Simulated scan of single mutants.
Amino acid sequence: MDGVSRETPEDWWEVEALYDLCFAPGRTALSSYRLRDGVAPIGALCLVWRDGGGVLGGAVRVWPVRVGGVAALLLGPVAVHPTRQGEGLGAFLIESVLERAAAEGHERVMLVGDAPYYSRFGFQALPGVEMPPPTNPERVLGVALTPGAWDGVAGAVTAARD
Rank of each mutant, 00 (worst) to 15 (best):
A102Q: 15
T135R: 03
A149L: 09
V153A: 03
P132G: 00
P116Y: 01
V140L: 01
A115V: 13
L126T: 05
M110T: 14
V143F: 11
L141I: 08
V140Y: 02
L111H: 10
V109T: 12
L126I: 03
P132I: 03
M110W: 07
Y118T: 07
A115K: 11
G105P: 12
V143E: 08
A115I: 10
P132D: 00
R120I: 02
H106S: 09
E107V: 06
P137L: 02
A149M: 10
F123Y: 08
R120E: 02
F123I: 03
Y117W: 09
A125L: 10
F121S: 12
S119G: 09
P134L: 07
E107F: 06
G142K: 04
E107Y: 00
E138I: 06
L126K: 00
A115N: 06
G128W: 10
G122H: 05
G122S: 06
V153G: 05
L126Q: 14
P133C: 08
V153S: 06
E104K: 00
V140N: 03
E130W: 06
P116C: 00
A125N: 11
M110C: 15
T146H: 13
L145I: 12
V129M: 05
R108C: 05
G128K: 10
G128Y: 08
V140F: 05
E107Q: 13
E130I: 10
Y118Q: 07
G152F: 13
P133E: 15
N136C: 09
P116D: 04
G122Y: 02
R139W: 11
R100H: 12
H106T: 09
F121K: 13
A149P: 08
V143W: 10
R139H: 14
Q124K: 12
L141Y: 06
R108I: 10
E107K: 12
P137Y: 06
R139T: 11
S119V: 10
L145M: 12
R100C: 09
G148W: 00
T146R: 15
P116E: 02
A102E: 15
D114W: 13
